[in-house]
């Protein structure tokens, strides 16, 4: 039986991406560290995504509370609202929404930027000027994504819980202090640690896929568009896989 070409291409792509990630780990901890470029990328990936992440987190907090509240009222469990929203925001919604937004915003921009640099020979120009373009372009962007995703997730969680508090306070009579007290008293390490750890992996996945797609894009402007597009699709798919694995692993250690 002949091996289907699409399956062959898929495994080839997985292999190439793994090799690219391996190359990242080979040079990620060795000198010279491109610290200026890393700070610049942290600013672009972190600070410039902050507004979008915060607004989305805020709206998610509002919507989640509005949608869930009637059912909780029906069951006479409205007192559990802060706990429920807190756990779902911290464990799943905050990290996942932040990661998906970043996959769209950062993954596509990295893919397009590196793709166009490749097409216009800027990566070659970097190479001949005595710079390792992989270290300068890829390592810095991946590290920046790894470092910034947890911080962005923290912001999304905090703003999302604030949005939820606004609905709760408008419908009931809970104070700001009371609401946050309920939320934090219901959270345990088993909620916070796995959720935080997985955001590092999310950051890595978004950074490495964006860089891989851009760095290996085919010549031509069409290749740049494809790189940006497939960076988002592949990274988003990978995020769900990582999330599933993270939840399974967390279940072993913390019995969710």
């Amino acid at each position: 039986m002949e091996f289907p070409k699409s399956l062959y291409d898929f495994f080839e792509e997985v292999g190439e991406l793994s090799r690219f990630a391996g190359r990242f780990f080979q040079v990620a901890f060795s000198r010279p560290f491109e610290s200026k470029e890393l700070i610049k990328q942290c600013y672009i990936i972190g600070y410039k995504s902050l507004f979008l992440v915060a607004v989305t987190g805020f709206i998610m907090g509002l919507v989640l509370t509005l949608q869930v509240r009637p059912t909780m009222v029906e069951f006479g469990a409205v007192a559990y609202m802060p706990r429920m929203i807190g756990i779902s925001m911290v464990r799943e919604i905050g990290p996942m929404i932040t990661a998906l937004i970043c996959a769209g915003k950062i993954g596509s921009s990295i893919g397009a930027e590196l793709g166009s640099m490749k097409v216009t020979e800027q990566i070659d120009a970097m190479e001949v000027s005595g710079t390792n373009p992989f270290k300068y372009l890829v390592v810095t962007r991946v590290w920046a994504a790894i470092l910034m995703l947890p911080l962005l997730t923290f912001v999304a969680d905090a703003v999302g819980l604030f949005g939820s508090y606004l609905i709760e306070s408008s419908k009931g009579s809970v104070s700001f202090y009371q609401y946050y007290n309920y939320v934090f008293s219901s959270l345990v390490f088993g909620d916070i640690i796995p959720a935080t750890l997985k955001t590092f992996f999310f950051g890595f996945a978004i950074g490495i896929v964006g860089c891989y797609k851009g760095y290996t894009s085919n010549k031509g402007t069409e290749g740049v568009g494809k790189a940006a597009n497939s960076a988002v699709v592949t990274a988003s798919l990978l995020l769900f896989i990582i999330d599933f694995i993270a939840v399974m692993v967390a279940d072993i250690f913390w019995e969710i």
């Binding site: 640099m117 216009t120 800027q122 070659d124 120009a125 970097m126 190479e127 001949v128 000027s129 005595g130």
Partner: peptide, 20 residues
């Protein structure tokens, strides 16, 4: 190789200036 490359100038067809 980087030392040798510093002795060699390369003018790329599309100039290859760093856009950013």
């Amino acid at each position: 190789l980087d030392i040798i490359r510093s002795e060699v100038g390369f003018l790329f067809q599309g100039s290859a200036l760093y856009d950013s």
